[in-house]
Every structure is written in C-alpha cells, then in structure tokens.
Computed example of a mutant assay.
Amino acid sequence: MSQTSRSGPARLAIFKTGDSFSDVVQHHGDFEDLFIARLQGFRQQGGIIEVIDVRHASLPAVSDQDGVIVTGSHAMVSDQAPWSEALKPWLRRAWQANLPLFGVCYGHQLMADAFGGVAGYHPSGRECGTRLLTLTDEGRKDPLFASLPERFNAQLTHAQSALTRPPQSMILAANDHDPYQALRHGPRQYSVQFHPEFTPAVTAAYLAHQREVLADQGEDPDALHQGLRDTPEASSLLDAFTLKMVISD
C-alpha cells in the first residue's frame, strides 16, 4: 500500500474537477463514472473508490487515501478558480508524502502548474480525436509505460496544455502537438494529457460539440471522426497505476 500505515482495503479517491456535457453524462456517464468503469482490476482486488468533488467539498487529509486520480474538467487552469488554486498546495503535500497521484487532462495541467511548470492555452489550438503518441526513452523504461508499445493511440480533447514541465518531471510520451503528453513527477506521481478513461463513443460526442472550433483552426471534423479508434493500451494505464502504485509498493 502507499505511505500510510492504515490496514484494510486500499482506498482510492477520484478528485472530480468538473462535469462533462449533459448528453455525454446521459449516454455514457460523467467523468468519475468513466474512470470507475476502467478500474475493474482495482475493484476486483477489493479496492474502495471514493469520489470527492473538489469544487465543493473539503479536501481530505493526505493520509486519508492510498492514491488519488484527478479528473478532467471543462474549466481552465489559467482561470485560477479558488477551488483549483486550493488544490495546488494539497497536491504538493501529497507529492512530498509520496502519495500515488494520477492526473488526467485538467489534472495533468494542474499538477504541472502546481509542481513548477506552467499551464495555459496551446498556441496551436485544440487537439481532439484519437491521436498517435510516442514513448520517450524514459517512457520505455517506466514501470507503468514500459508495457505499452512504442507508439500507441489515445483519446484527446483539450485546449490548454502543460506548456512547460516542472524541472524535476520526466517526459514519458509526446506527439507533434504536445511534447508533454505524459509526465512522471516522482516515483508514484503521474499525469497525462490524454483521456485513458474515454471510449471512442465519448470522444465522438466531444468531436460533435467541437466541430466548429476544429474547422475554424483548419481541421476536418469528419476525418477526425472517421479516425476514431479503440485505445486499450492507453486505458490500461489506469488499472496499472492502481494495482502497481496504490495497492502494491
């Protein structure tokens, strides 16, 4: 288990930082539901999952959990909402305590910002669809990412990115749009720009919402829709994280 001395089942908190579109929630579930559906291995091992909406609820003590996943959001890190800014020192305390962390999209950008990098709007605009990522040398040696092929597909939708990485963070995966698609911030602290919890159907729903924006920046939304693929390698990271970093030392 993690650094805590509590006995009993491993406890994982999902820090909910936003809500998906209403049609996505209706047909596929909200962000937290998509994560829970992917964490079959953790649940089969008796792990307990708690969803904490950090926009409204008090943050728990770092020692209350054995691991934390920070979800995506339609909010923007650069807006510096009070709840978001309050989460940064909590993440720094968790990092110092070596609590396993896994940030996704907004969570990735927030962790990068909290740990000494900078998050903001990407100069090339929005990235959406199933995109091909490439492991770095560090990624090929990483305990979580080494089991992935050197090039793998992932679901993406984001307008902001980690524009600069924290000085201590290692780059694990990249593509032409974003050199920091996956970062390791410490022994058990990870974040990814892509959405390992998304299915192609969820990404298709996001493409439908973002057709006009994508067309305005010179992309073909129909071609992006036709290019949607399953992304089992990217999705496998969630169970790998909880089984290797949260349940096991």
Rank of each mutant, 00 (worst) to 15 (best):
T4L: 09
H74C: 15
L59Q: 09
K141P: 08
D30P: 01
G29E: 03
F42G: 02
V118R: 14
Q109L: 02
R126A: 05
A182Q: 01
Q155V: 08
Q217W: 00
P187W: 14
Y121I: 13
A204G: 14
Y180M: 12
E197N: 06
L224K: 08
R38G: 09
G103C: 06
Q26C: 13
L99Q: 02
A97P: 04
H28P: 06
A208N: 11
D79H: 12
Y190F: 04
S20L: 08
Q155M: 09
E150A: 15
H209V: 09
P221R: 03
K88L: 11
A94V: 07
S73Q: 03
L91K: 02
R43L: 13
L132Y: 07
S236H: 05
R165Q: 14
P179C: 08
I171Q: 11
S161R: 14
S7T: 10
H177D: 13
C105F: 06
D249T: 13
G18I: 07
L144W: 12
P9G: 08
Y106N: 02
R131C: 13
R92L: 13
K141F: 04
A154Q: 06
E85Y: 12
Q45H: 12
L243P: 03
Y180T: 09
D137S: 11
P149D: 04
F35Y: 15
L91S: 01
Y190A: 04
A114E: 01
V104D: 01
A159C: 11
V24Y: 01
V51I: 12
T242F: 04
V54L: 06
T242N: 00
C128K: 08
G47N: 10
V77T: 04
D230F: 10
D222N: 10
E219C: 12
A75F: 13
G120P: 09
G129P: 04
I247W: 03
L99K: 07
G107T: 03
D19T: 14
L207G: 05
F42P: 01
Q189M: 05
A159V: 15
W83A: 08
A13Y: 11
M76R: 10
G29M: 03
E150V: 14
L12V: 10
F35R: 03
V70D: 00
V25S: 08
G117E: 05
W95C: 15
A162L: 02
G186R: 05
T203D: 00
L207E: 03
H27Q: 15
S58G: 10
L132P: 02
T134W: 04
A215D: 00
Q45T: 11
S58Y: 11
Q65E: 15
K88P: 12
A94F: 10
D113K: 10
A201D: 06
A10K: 03
V70I: 11
F35P: 07
